[in-house]
Design a protein around this nucleic acid. Structure first.
Lengths: 215, 215
DNA sequence: CGTCTATGGTAATAGGTATTACCAAGTCAA
DNA sequence: TTGACTTGGTAATACCTATTACCATAGACG
């Protein structure tokens, strides 16, 4: 009883139930996963689930929220902010690494699948997860503007552009299960390519100097 | 018996079943939709469904395939290819319009939800839908390279970058149900912004001429 | 006219579902 | 020891599920 968290953490029963439920929801989806199956994997009694989470949907919501918070932990979005090129590269690598992990993909699929029927769930996933990254990025872009490295009309819109550019089409394909998670080398080259296009564009005739161009 | 298509088209029973099934799957998801509910909405008998599609999954696959083909009809990806800027703008507008429609979003959610359990379904959705757009775009970029408008190392990768840039973060948010479909004005300004960043980049210090810059 | 096939309607099969109830066993503090 | 509580285990409730079987009708085709 030294410094006890109010609700979560350090309840092994609760953690076991959430773990079993997460792996089942991840592999079978929400509707196809039964409370019986969760109990069969975690042990214990259904009463415990209903006492702790109220309903199947309550269990699902708690699970999505806590997994989102754990996966998108704050350290990922706190790197150096200067110089801009390095900040963007580092952010892009973190983003690709995090977003393309199998567990992150499974979580995203689950949220997308139920987004039409559980709008608050999708909202909380976005707020606790991806939105934090976009806000951090927008702040970086705003600071770069005050230092004259870039001219920004709308930092949020520009941050959204950069996010899309980094994910490119590869994220789309991974979400669809058409390719497995990315190799570290792929992540780095995709991040470099995204930063380059974002800053310099693809029309070389208008570039003054193109530093590392192959002949 | 003049020019009869081999399997689909012009079978009103089949069309009614697929229509009812589509709207139910779209609003409830795959697992939560029952054959009984489909029959209740479309009329007829369950035997007919099993005679025509073999199983619930067969019905689902046929429905996804045919809806994908219809929504991503070829005309959308056949516009003018020159000048490059106009081609990219037109493509971006079409892409945003198509991808953010409620029916396209519902279809995508369904495919993503089952991508882990029905990989061939996701593959066929991608091949019959989004992939066609990327191939068209890659060809446009390749042609622009031969005309000297752009320098392209890997047309497919660059096409993927452009697709991500156009979708930006807005598509992500629409898929999550956080904002409704885009207004035509939004679509056009997002498309313009994407083309500009793609071609010119965001570092004005290195640009030689920036045509329409506000003071 | 008689088949043949496709369909609608109903019911059977063989389960599975979320949720609540009930009861025995354990846990903890006073 | 007493009481308050949280659990595990089992069973009941009141359905819903995909799939197959059966039968009567209806239209098509020779």
């Amino acid at each position: 009883m030294t410094t006890e968290a109010p609700d979560l953490h350090a309840d092994p029963r609760r953690a076991a139930l959430l773990d079993a439920a997460a792996s089942l929801f991840f592999e079978r989806g929400y509707a196809a996963t039964s409370i019986d199956a969760i109990i069969e994997r975690a042990g214990g009694s259904k009463r415990t689930i209903y006492a702790m989470f109220g309903s199947k949907e309550g269990l699902f919501e708690a699970l999505i929220r806590e997994n989102t918070e754990r996966m998108f932990s704050a350290e990922l979005f706190g790197g150096q902010a200067r110089p801009l090129e390095a900040a963007l590269s580092g952010f892009a690598v973190h983003l690709l690494d995090l977003f393309t992990r199998p567990r992150t993909i499974a979580l995203f699929r689950l949220v997308v699948a139920e987004a039409g029927r559980m709008p608050e769930l999708a909202e909380s996933f976005h707020r606790l997860g991806p939105l934090r990254g976009r806000h951090w990025l927008a702040r970086v872009l705003e600071r770069a503007q005050t230092e004259g490295e870039i001219r920004v009309a709308d930092p949020q819109l520009l941050a959204g552009q950069f996010l899309g550019l980094v994910r490119s089409d590869a994220y789309f394909e991974i979400v669809l299960g058409l390719r497995g998670p990315l190799e570290p080398g792929e992540i780095e080259s995709m991040a470099e390519a995204a930063v380059s296009t974002f800053l310099e564009g693809q029309r070389p005739a208008r570039r003054v100097n193109a530093p590392d161009e192959e002949i």
